[in-house]
Each structure stands twice: as structure tokens, then as C-alpha cells.
């Protein structure tokens, strides 16, 4: 019996050892073949770059996509492929795999979901294709470079503005409505976190309601109307990006709570992005603050980092783009200085 057990043990050890060898040997072969593939791709005479975007509706992301395409072509990429996943992470994973099949030298990803897109990033890693995360971070796989703004800081800046404008008011006396956009968007989640952190620093600011809206205009409109029934003295509203301000303004008008900036009854409105319409609104006193992100910079930097990689020049792991705080007081100057992607003189 003991002999039998010993034999069985030996067989198991032998099997485990052969499994280990089997696992390691092809991996080396794969590594070699992946390196060969990379060398072949880079040396095939065609520089091809792919940009998998979560979505391409909206002025901001269209600006980003256009800037990326223009810069990539300027830097010598022969083939620039831009794909939109309509905010579906499944579609984006498939699209990234298609970009691998298309033999892209570099793949840039504006992720639909920071976690959901990881398997596709790992597939890129296996194929030896560097991944550049643009606009939003990615929570896994090997990322060659992340180009993004500091979303937490962007949200916090809006809270700080609300705080500054109401400095000296009594504790918890300035009621704030926080509209939550798309819960699957890392950028929007970070902006929301930043906004909460910012509000905590100002004793007078109290977030009285946080409403989930899926970034749907109808739901935002209803959320504002209903929030004022419970808290008629709301003094400030934060939305995660500029385009969501339109239904907020419409709802305020419906319930008779819309007063332009300067009026004592004015409800302060703040958002992030720096879209044209909302920057123009600043001068009209409709909204109060918009954080202008560098969408041109996102696209151009992504293309530059990719070109550097192809040319054998390394890059930083993280490149943070600048955000600009825009208010009625400085928007005209910033536009004249050509510092805003959404507005120029």
C-alpha cells in the first residue's frame, strides 16, 4: 500500500513538474514571437495607430478625436483608425481586439469603463502593443502612458468656488444639489469625489441631495424640479459635465427659480469641460463656473506619445493636462488668449 502511495506521489510530482515546464517553455516562445511581431509591425513601413473611444458624441470628445487625428497624421502616421463604442464596454473590448488584428503599432484608449476594458488591455500587452490611456485612467493591465486631467481636482475646484462665493455664511446654510451623471464613468466618479471633498472643506456648504441621473437630460430635469420641492432654498448645483447644465437651467426656469448671476436669488451652477455654450453662458450670468479641460491636449499628446514610442523615444508613465477655471471674470481674457478649446475670439 505504502509503495503504491509513493508511486502515486511520484506520478503527481512528475505531472506537476511537466506542467510547469509546459507552462514556461511556450511562454518563452510566445515572448519571442511577440517581440518578432512587434519588430515586424514597426518595420513594415506602415505606421498605424488606433484610438478606441468610449463615445464620440459631444463637442468635447469630437474635439479630442479631431486633434488626435490631425496630430497623428502630422507626425507621420499613415493610417489613423478611430472607433466609437457608444459607451458600451463590451463593444470597446471587441473594437480593441479588432485594432490588434489590424496590426496597429500603438493603441490609445478612452475607456468606457476603467475596469471592464482591462481584458482588452491585457490582450494588447500579450500582442506587444503599447496602450495609451487617454482622458480616463484604466485600472489594470500594463499601461504605457496615461494622459488625463486631475478629475478630483476639477470637481474640488467647483466646490472651492462655491465656498469662496459664500464665505462667511453660517455653518451648513448653503444647500447644494449634486447631480450624479454616469456611474460607470471613472472621470465622473472622480469629479463627484473631488466635489464632495471640496464641500467638506467649507463649513457652510451642505450637499442636501445627490441624485442619480445616468446623464439623461429628462431625469436631470425631473431631479432638479423634485429637489426644490424638498429643499426650496438650494443655492448651488453641480453637474459632472457642461452639457448636463441645459436641463438644469430649463428646470430652474420651469419652477421659477432661475435668476441671473448678481441677483440675490441666483442659484449658482458649476460644471466641468468648458464647452462652447456653457462658456458663453458665463458672460450672460446663466452659470457661474466651468472647468475647461484640455481636450485638444488629450488628443495631441496621445498622438505625440505614440509617435515617440514608434521612434524609440520613451515617455513618462503619466502626463497630466492642465485644467483652467473659467468664470464670468476671466472667460473673455482666456478666450482672447486662445487658452480655451471651446471658445476663441
Amino acid at each position: 500500500m505504502k509503495k503504491m502511495k509513493r508511486v502515486l506521489l511520484l506520478i503527481v510530482i512528475a505531472l506537476m513538474a511537466s506542467a510547469l515546464v509546459a507552462c514556461s517553455t511556450p511562454a518563452t516562445a510566445d515572448d519571442n514571437s511577440a517581440n518578432d511581431e512587434v519588430a515586424k509591425r514597426l518595420g513594415d513601413g506602415v505606421n498605424r495607430i488606433g484610438f478606441a473611444m468610449a463615445e464620440i458624441t459631444g463637442q468635447a470628445v469630437q474635439t479630442e478625436a479631431q486633434a488626435f487625428e490631425d496630430k497623428a497624421k502630422e507626425l507621420g502616421f499613415d493610417d489613423v483608425i478611430i472607433l466609437s463604442a457608444e459607451n458600451s464596454v463590451e463593444t470597446q473590448v471587441t473594437q480593441i481586439k479588432d485594432l490588434i488584428t489590424s496590426e496597429c503599432d500603438v493603441i490609445c484608449v478612452y475607456s468606457a469603463d476603467a475596469d471592464g476594458v482591462v481584458p482588452a488591455v491585457q490582450a494588447c500587452n500579450e500582442a506587444g502593443i503599447p496602450v495609451i490611456a487617454v482622458d480616463r485612467g484604466i485600472n489594470g493591465g500594463e499601461i504605457y502612458c496615461t494622459i488625463a486631467s486631475n478629475n478630483i481636482s476639477d470637481g474640488r475646484d467647483v466646490a472651492n468656488y462655491f465656498g469662496l462665493m459664500t464665505e462667511g455664511e453660517a455653518e451648513d446654510s448653503v444647500k447644494v444639489l449634486h447631480i450624479i451623471g454616469n456611474l460607470s464613468s471613472t472621470a465622473q466618479k472622480e469629479r463627484a469625489d473631488g466635489f464632495r471633498i471640496g464641500c467638506e472643506n467649507w463649513g457652510q456648504l451642505e450637499i442636501v441631495d445627490e441624485v442619480a441621473t445616468d446623464a439623461d437630460a429628462d431625469r436631470i430635469y425631473n431631479a432638479v424640479v423634485d429637489a426644490f420641492k424638498v429643499n426650496p432654498d438650494i443655492k448651488a448645483i453641480f453637474v459632472p459635465y457642461d452639457q448636463l447644465l441645459s436641463p438644469v437651467v430649463s428646470a430652474l426656469k420651469e419652477i421659477g427659480m432661475f435668476y441671473p448671476a448678481g441677483d440675490p436669488n441666483h442659484v449658482m451652477l458649476g460644471a466641468v469641460d468648458g464647452a462652447t455654450e456653457q462658456l458663453e453662458w458665463l458672460s450672460e450670468g446663466i452659470n457661474d463656473i466651468s472647468i475647461s479641460l484640455d481636450f485638444l491636449g488629450f488628443g495631441q499628446t496621445a498622438a505625440s506619445v505614440a509617435a515617440d514610442y514608434v521612434n524609440g523615444i520613451s515617455s513618462n508613465d503619466v502626463v497630466l493636462t492642465k485644467s483652467i477655471v473659467c468664470t464670468a471674470g476671466n472667460v473673455e481674457y482666456l478666450a482672447k488668449a486662445g487658452m480655451l478649446w471651446g471658445l476663441s475670439e
Binding site: 445616468d214 439623461d216 429628462d218 452639457q243 441645459s246 437651467v249
Partner: peptide, 17 residues
């Protein structure tokens, strides 16, 4: 009605209704 209520059209308005 939905666009009239909001004063105009919006991206993805009412999708998923």
C-alpha cells in the same frame, strides 16, 4: 413634448425610455 419641456434637443435625450 420632451424637447419642448427642455427647451430643445439634447444628446441621448429619452434613450432607454
Amino acid at each position: 413634448l420632451s424637447t419642448s419641456r427642455l427647451g430643445g434637443s439634447q444628446f441621448n435625450l429619452s434613450l432607454g425610455t
